[in-house]
């Protein structure tokens, strides 16, 4: 993914560039329902442990961008992938925007639009292969037997079926096309 300068600092936004339907699109996505409740108090940002070390991730600003309709800027950004999923903002948001779930909703839309970071894409490949995010090798099972705990299946082939039936391949293929 390309690195971009923070766009709000750099340029004037004109109404023409805005997609006013974006907030409705996000609201329809599972997890995005409460987006329009946000009144920009900033509780999310001040409580965010990611923001405290990297201000590229600013949940208050991201929500504002969605409400304004900066669709492409949000969906093509790196910053939507920086939420660590800690639920600090989720617990404290006075408007119950459920920001952790909201970020997941936005990411789902971004993936369908062909924007998926490489490490996320490899999650799918690895799960298809092993059924787990990490490979259980022969070595692990030798150690397990030595410690007297049950061996693990090195692969769980059914996961591939789950992914196929839920159309993840179509979603990922779409992102290949745009690479």
């Amino acid at each position: 993914m390309t690195k971009k300068k923070s766009l709000l600092k750099e340029k004037t936004i004109t109404m023409k560039e805005l997609d006013s339907s974006f907030k409705f699109e996000v609201a329809k996505e599972p997890g995005g329902k409460n987006i329009k409740r946000c009144f920009s108090c900033g509780t999310c940002t001040v409580t965010c442990p990611v923001f405290s070390v990297n201000d590229k991730y600013n949940p208050r600003k991201i929500i504002r961008m969605i409400l304004l309709g900066l669709r492409e800027e949000v969906l093509k950004s790196d910053f939507i992938w920086l939420c660590s999923g800690c639920y600090s903002c989720y617990e404290l948001c006075p408007r119950d925007v459920k920001i952790t779930n909201l970020m997941i909703a936005v990411r789902n839309i971004a993936v369908r639009e062909g924007n998926i970071p490489m490490p996320m894409k490899s999650i799918v490949d690895i799960l298809q292969k092993f059924g787990r995010l990490l490979e259980v090798s022969e070595f692990e099972n030798i150690v397990r037997l030595k410690k007297g705990i049950p061996e693990l299946n090195p692969t769980i082939p059914e996961v591939k079926k789950v992914l196929k039936k839920t159309d993840i391949e179509k979603v990922i293929r779409n992102s290949d096309k745009d690479d």
Partner: peptide, 24 residues
């Protein structure tokens, strides 16, 4: 032995896959 990934890592990529992984 058939337990697999819980589904959580997929939630950010494709909500539906994650749900079915967990439910399985």
């Amino acid at each position: 032995p058939e337990f697999a990934c819980c589904g959580f890592p997929l939630n950010s990529i494709h909500h539906n896959s994650a749900l079915v992984m967990a439910a399985r």
